[in-house]
Structures are given as structure tokens and as C-alpha cells.
């Protein structure tokens, strides 16, 4: 296991470096001068050169990258152009909200999706299968930002049961006055992992139940309930790893839902950064989200290797 873990971790390092290069290059990909957002258009050439030197933009690109990376590794992602506050602080605050939203959505999506997929996999070809597979198909096909709007229309505009936007009063608690803001965005976001997990679990269950050992267990007189436990144990590792990946996708991909619900997370931050041309904030947020995704993938791989040693080949 240690050798496997070491190998996987070593494999991740070049990917992480590559990701940081891509994030660094984003700013240079942007049309126009990165300083255009802070400098007045009639700034003198002298002032422009001064600012350029101040931000290190006069140095060769590899040097800029090296300095940027060293600062980033120390937790310094520069300052937001719009607010002047450190980017790291802005991201940390937003990341907590996104973690809450994505975490709840993943658990919800996994619970519903795994149940549906399990039922469909056991009852293949029946109407149960058709209905649950249909729901799963809708889950992976629905434009989730639209589903969010529809839920707002039904539960906020028409029924007036739940708030349409925001994350509730300041502070966090398990109080309903806070939780009610979480319901609609979390349900909306959970639809994607629900569909994907249902489809994955369905085909996994179908594969496992087709194996000889399952009929052997039944033939030797084991109760159906006990046979199913064996099926679950065989399906669980892969299903859980899919869930882990989905959490990563939701953390990085919640921008549309956070925009629909004005949920103050990283996606919302990203949206703000894009439209205020706040490049340091944009770059920092993308870097952090991508790194979290890389780490979650690594964690899922290690966990899967620990549960199922066959994967460590």
C-alpha cells in the first residue's frame, strides 16, 4: 500500500505543476494589458513602467512564474483588484460555502442515485428499471441552471415556501432559518451526481449479479437479503469513488448554480471576478479549485487502493 501511495503521489506532482502553469498562463491569455484594470487610460509611460516593475511584469515569464508559484505556496495569491483584499482570504470565505453546498448535494445525490441504480440493476428490463433509468437519464441531461430556475419558480415564486437567493443570515448553524436557504441550491446541484451515480450503480449491479458467485450463493440456499449484501460489498468501492469524483466536479462546477441562487461561494466569486476583470482573484480561485480537484482525485485513488488491493497493480 505504501508503495502504491508513494507512486500515486509522485504521479500527481507533475500534474499539479502543469495545472499551476495553466493557471499562471491564464492571465497572459487574457486580451489587453493586465494592468489596464487598475491604471487610468491616460497614465504616463513612466507610471506604467513603475507599475509594471511593481507587479513584476517586466521580468521574463519563467521568472514571473517562479515568483508567483513561491508566493502561492506560501498562501499569497496576490490582492483582489476590485476590493484590495488578499485573494486567499476571499477564497477561504467563499470555499466554506461551496463545500457546504457541494457536500450536501453530493450526499443527497449519492443516496438517491445509488438507491435508484441499485433497484434498476436488480430489476433489469422491468418497469421499475425503465422508470428509474428514465429519471437517471433526465438527471444527466437536464441543464441544471434551468432546473434551479424552475425550482425557484415553483417553491419561491408560486408557493413561497423557500427563499430564492442568498445563503441566509450571517453565521452558520443547523437552524432552519439558515438551512432553508440551502434546500433549493443543494437539491438542484444534487441532480447531476444523482443521474451519474444511478447509471453507474445500475451497470455495476447488473455486472455483479451476472457473476457466478451470486447464483452459487443463491443455490447453496443463502437468503436473498444476504446475497444482496454481497452484491453491495462488490459495488460499493467503485460507487464510492464515483461519488468522490462527483464531489470534486461539484466543487469546481457549482458556478452556474451559485449564480442562479446568488450563493456566496467560489463559483459566485469566480463570476464576480470575471465581470470585474479582477484577474488575480480569477486566477487564484481557479488555481485553488483545480488543486482541490486534483487532491480529491488523489484521495479517491488512495482510498480505492486501500479498500480494494487489486487496484494497486
Amino acid at each position: 500500500m505504501m508503495a502504491y501511495a508513494a507512486k500515486r503521489i509522485l504521479q500527481v506532482v507533475p500534474v499539479a505543476v502543469g495545472v499551476s502553469v495553466v493557471c499562471f498562463m491564464l492571465i497572459h491569455l487574457a486580451p489587453g494589458d493586465p494592468l489596464a484594470a487598475i491604471l487610468p487610460s491616460d497614465a504616463s509611460a513612466d507610471l506604467q513602467a513603475q507599475m509594471r516593475a511593481l507587479y513584476g511584469l517586466d521580468r521574463p515569464l519563467p521568472v514571473q512564474y517562479g515568483l508567483w508559484l513561491i508566493r502561492a505556496l506560501h498562501g499569497d495569491l496576490g490582492q483582489s483588484i476590485a476590493t484590495g483584499r488578499p485573494v486567499t482570504g476571499e477564497i477561504a470565505g467563499a470555499a466554506v460555502n461551496t463545500f457546504i453546498l457541494a457536500g450536501v448535494a453530493t450526499v443527497l445525490g449519492f443516496t438517491v442515485g445509488a438507491t435508484l441504480g441499485f433497484l434498476a440493476g436488480l430489476a433489469r428490463g422491468t418497469w421499475v428499471d425503465r422508470i428509474t433509468s428514465g429519471i437517471a437519464m433526465l438527471g444527466v441531461s437536464v441543464p441544471h441552471y434551468w432546473l434551479g430556475l424552475v425550482l425557484v419558480i415553483v417553491f419561491s415564486v408560486e408557493l413561497n415556501w423557500l427563499p430564492a437567493t442568498g445563503a441566509g443570515p450571517g453565521g452558520r448553524s443547523l437552524d432552519w432559518s439558515y438551512l432553508r436557504f440551502l434546500v433549493l441550491p443543494a437539491v438542484t446541484l444534487s441532480v447531476i451526481p444523482m443521474g451519474i451515480i444511478a447509471r453507474t450503480v445500475r451497470s455495476l449491479v447488473a455486472d455483479v449479479t451476472a457473476q457466478d458467485f451470486v447464483s452459487a450463493l443463491g443455490a447453496k440456499g443463502m437468503l436473498r437479503r444476504q446475497v444482496l449484501r454481497h452484491v453491495v460489498r462488490n459495488v460499493a468501492p467503485t460507487a464510492l469513488s464515483v461519488m468522490g469524483l462527483q464531489l470534486g466536479y461539484l466543487l469546481g462546477g457549482s458556478i452556474l448554480i451559485e449564480t442562479v441562487f446568488s450563493w456566496p461561494g467560489t463559483g459566485f466569486l469566480l463570476n464576480t471576478a470575471i465581470f470585474t476583470r479582477d484577474l488575480p482573484l480569477l486566477q487564484g480561485t481557479i488555481l485553488v479549485l483545480a488543486m482541490i480537484f486534483v487532491l480529491i482525485n488523489l484521495g479517491v485513488d488512495l482510498l480505492q487502493g486501500a479498500i480494494d488491493p487489486r487496484i494497486q497493480r
Binding site: 495553466v22 487574457a30 486580451p31 469546481g252 462546477g253 480537484f293
Partner: peptide, 24 residues
């Protein structure tokens, strides 16, 4: 493949938003 891995390491929504957000 290692170059591909780097781009694959981004969640697709994030990469799409990051690129089109920076490009305009």
C-alpha cells in the same frame, strides 16, 4: 498524455468558465 492529464485535471465546467472568462 501528460499534457492531456494536466487539462483533464480541471473539472470541465471550471475549465470552460476559466478559459472563456479570461478570453472574454
Amino acid at each position: 498524455m501528460r499534457t492531456v492529464d494536466v487539462f483533464y485535471a480541471f473539472p470541465s465546467v471550471l475549465l470552460a468558465v476559466a478559459l472563456s472568462g479570461t478570453l472574454g
